[in-house]
Write a protein that binds this DNA or RNA. Structure first.
Lengths: 130, 130
DNA sequence: ATTGAGCTTCCAGTAGCTGGAACCCCTATA
DNA sequence: TATAGGGGTTCCAGCTACTGGAAGCTCAAT
């Protein structure tokens, strides 16, 4: 299968697929004309990575997960460790973001949003803790 | 004031401060020896940017906010628009992240985490939607 | 005089792509 | 058969917001 079809079936841009080959996540075969020829296995790997990326796993996580995926002697504990570490990162990010949201929402609420120059948002940002 | 003291007082790495000069957020004066000489105004700007970055505003947002901050004829509506757009982005990110968290938490929960090779996390990631 | 800290510039690298240019290949149609 | 189009290829550059490191200058203290 050529790259366009793979792109359509995995929902990954062709550019991204080429990039994934560049960094060694997949190694599709080549036709005589130099075109990439993707196997079903390549397709599955790409779909796997696509889903993992969608869940926010880093490329390095994906690389490890792919390796564990292909390793029949793996333990589920290894996979769990990666997922759990990622989960903790997500939870930390969530806390940080909801703090931001609360602060910003409060500021936006306080701001008249009219043509007057006084603005509590700027005043807050300018609060000097120096 | 030299860069190290500014760094200490604003909690921004010296590298970052130099970078902010590079991209034109601040334009500190120079001493005869070529060292940057920071004014109180530079300090305030840096603290402002530091706080805005901490709230997740992009550098371009910061640039605009700084301009509005320095503009006495500004309207609070302009600032509010930037903040609100940013707030919406944060809220979208929050929704996305909590979806990720829920999915991942469920998967981690299901995973025995022992030495057996069967792992619901990998199985889920491998679910083919191709 | 020399050490060590602090400052400078510049170059390169990080993550994860994305856009674009220049060029090859294959098929279909006038 | 010429040509147009829609594939494909490579490589280079750029994005965000820094960060690390090397080479070299300056300054204060011993």
């Amino acid at each position: 299968m050529n790259i366009k079809d793979v792109s359509a079936r995995t929902n990954l841009p062709a550019k991204t697929i080429r990039y994934y080959e560049d960094i060694g996540l997949i190694t599709p075969a080549r036709s005589e004309n130099g075109y990439r020829r993707f196997s079903e296995n390549d397709l599955h790997k790409l779909a796997f990575v696509g889903r993992a990326r969608h869940l926010g796993f880093s490329i390095e996580d994906c690389r490890n997960l792919l390796a564990l995926w292909g390793d029949d002697g793996r333990s589920s504990a290894d996979v769990r460790a990666i997922a759990q570490s990622h989960l903790h990162q997500i939870e930390a990010k969530l806390r940080e973001l909801s703090e931001m949201r609360d602060t910003l929402a409060r500021l936006v609420q306080c701001c008249a949003g009219d043509s007057r120059p006084d603005c509590p948002i700027l005043e807050d940002l300018a609060k000097t803790h120096i």
